[in-house]
Amino acid sequence: MDSQGWDDRYAASELVWGAAPNRWVVRELTGSTPGRALDLGAGEGRNAIWLATQGWEVTGLDFSAVALERAERLTAELPDEVADRLTWRHGDARTDEDPAAYDLVLVAYLQLPAEDRRAALHRAADALAPGGTLLVIGHDLTNLTDGVGGPQDPAVLFTPEDVLADLAEYGLRTVRAERVHRTVGEPGHKGGLTGVAVDALVRLERSAE
């Protein structure tokens, strides 16, 4: 789906993904020492906003202008000390060149064909500061047969092994590379589905040297 397609999708519904941060983002990053963070494919900003509440200085990048407008509206409702930690930028995760170095780069549910995914992950790895963390979360390929919800096109799904292969040349340390199971149909879940979804989760670190 191109940027216009995502603009249309975001415009058709209020808070497509809800306001709460992704559970894996919360699990992996609660208690982490805050620094500078980059959220690639930030959408309406739910994860970036949560990171800002934890003390992170966050740049949220997305190629949907509609999503970023919504993120800016949500930011305006936040306390100043949180809102001041958020910067929204319009750009493409596959091609955006950012000279800054980040202590955390988050890529959450950026479901792209393999070549585009690899380009986005390379941009993410390039943006990592020494000692930085790269956290990648998305719908796993096995969700098609073993889970519920999510994209039904296998071309945009991936596995933890795919992420590791995409980033093999960077020499990052693998902290975690696993499939995780997410219950859907809980209170507040949108979409009407119930069951268990299968996600891919990969956490990598750049050497501090």
Rank of each mutant, 00 (worst) to 15 (best):
D62T: 06
A65Q: 09
V66Y: 14
V66I: 11
A67M: 02
A67N: 05
E69W: 01
A71W: 02
E72V: 00
E72R: 05
R73W: 00
L74T: 10
L74C: 07
T75H: 08
A76F: 02
L78R: 13
L78E: 15
L78A: 12
P79D: 13
P79G: 10
D80G: 06
D80Y: 02
E81N: 10
E81R: 07
E81M: 04
R85S: 04
R85D: 10
W88M: 08
H90V: 07
G91S: 12
G91A: 12
D92T: 14
D92R: 12
D92V: 12
D92I: 14
R94F: 08
R94L: 11
T95S: 14
D96G: 10
D96R: 10
E97R: 07
D98S: 04
D98T: 08
P99T: 09
P99G: 08
A100E: 14
A101C: 08
Y102E: 10
V105F: 03
L106A: 09
A108V: 01
A108Y: 02
A108H: 08
Y109G: 05
Y109A: 04
Y109N: 13
Y109Q: 09
Q111H: 13
L112K: 06
P113N: 11
P113V: 13
A114V: 15
D116F: 02
R118Y: 04
A119K: 01
A120M: 06
L121S: 08
H122D: 15
A125H: 09
D126A: 11
D126K: 03
L128P: 04
L128A: 05
P130Q: 14
G131I: 05
G132D: 11
V136R: 14
T142S: 08
T142I: 04
T142M: 01
N143Y: 01
T145M: 01
T145D: 09
D146K: 00
G149A: 03
G150R: 00
Q152R: 04
P154G: 10
A155V: 09
V156Q: 10
V156W: 04
V156R: 08
L157H: 08
T159F: 01
P160K: 05
E161M: 07
E161W: 06
D162N: 15
D166G: 06
D166K: 01
D166E: 14
E169T: 03
E169C: 02
L172A: 07
L172E: 15
R173G: 09
T174G: 12
T174Q: 11
V175D: 14
R176Q: 11
A177H: 05
H181E: 08
V184K: 04
E186S: 07
G188I: 01
G191V: 02
G191S: 10
G192M: 02
G192D: 14
L193C: 05
V196G: 00
V196T: 03
A197P: 09
D199I: 00
D199F: 00
